[in-house]
Amino acid sequence: MHEMVLNKNQICQLLEDVTDPEIPVISIRDLGILRDIRIDHNHVEVVITPTYSGCPAMLEIERSINNTLKKNNIENFRITTILSPAWTTDWMTEEGKQKLKEYGIAPPSPTNEDDIQCPNCNSRNTSLVSQFGSTACKSLFKCNDCLEPFDYFKCH
């Protein structure tokens, strides 16, 4: 089969299609899971890091990277998982945070975790229901104004 040779930016662009299976609006680059793309001649190495150690989405993400590259005729590649430096929500892109908010998840707020804004009505009159939410990376809040419960992507 004919192998395409792409540069780092082009591969990065292809991988924009790879999203978190739990939050399908946000790509692995937006989330900070995609750490590097290393190209040596025509061999591609995609470097990723898990969010939480038990995150069940990682296997699905690897599968998705695999499928995306193959679909674009890239066969000579490897996916490497690294643990260090440990993933942090500081790596989330501004674009990613905006997408989360539009999806109904309050993005991480490193300056003030006691004052989380409701993603539905923008009120700051909210309260924590549980530190642990629908996935390891989120906690559960409710808005005291519009009364909607919502997920908050916690700082990590």
């Binding site: 995150c55 549980s130 530190q131």
Partner: peptide, 16 residues
């Protein structure tokens, strides 16, 4: 909520 908390912690521990 606490059912979810315990299984979240379980998941972290099994990941570790």
């Amino acid at each position: 909520e606490q059912d979810i908390a315990m299984t979240n912690i379980a998941l972290d521990l099994i990941g570790q």
